[in-house]
Amino acid sequence: MKLLIAGATSAIAHETARYFAADGAELFLVGRDPEKLAAIQHDLQVRGAKRVVSYALDLNELERHEAMISEAYEALGGLDAVLIAHGTLPDQARVQHNRAETLQEFQTNALSYISLLTILAERFEQQRRGCIAVISSVAGDRGRGSNYVYGAAKGAVSLFASGLRARLSKAGVAVVTIKPGFVDTPMTAHLKKNPLYASPARVGRRIYVAMLKGEDVVYVPWFWRYIMGIIRLIPERLFKRLPL
């Protein structure tokens, strides 16, 4: 398995990568912090990855995506799968008053995904096989007052992936949308934990399985599908008054 991971320093992505490494996969890791990338690279090498290549890049530099993906194809001699995982969780109360910061969050959490997906779609459509997985979020299923900047960006990723899935299914390429609920990672380290929090190891394992099977939309843990199903049913007239 030849796998590209964008945002490879994410705790969730790392847990997923561990399963692929144990299978002897070849990995191309992209992240913006070279020191963290090296720590991940060494871990995956020890765990059995056949080859690990690190590539330092701030994924907000959209104009460098094309070169990075070419490099991945070259380094591994092709790609079987991609996981796009990077992200930031903004402080809604702050960014909602700041146009520049709000757009920056869109750049990180939506536009950079769309840029990567657009390039990858061409390649995968041509090679007519493989799997592209994106980490979206349950937060993208409905806009909530407390988190709509992040939620809207993730919602854009979910919608974009849904359309892309329809397009690429004709070429035999799977597009997997991962929608985690709360996960206990550095991204949520400052938040108070509740029993709904899942471990990154559990989420990572689920993503690994979903990618191998080429599933469509995966809620992790599974019960979020039902929670979000109910949340989506609440009429807007009522929803806007809920403290969510």
Binding site: P186, A189, H190, L191, K192, K193, N194, P195
Partner: peptide, 9 residues
Amino acid sequence: MIINGHGRT
């Protein structure tokens, strides 16, 4: 390093 706020005991 990130500061605290855990429900875990």
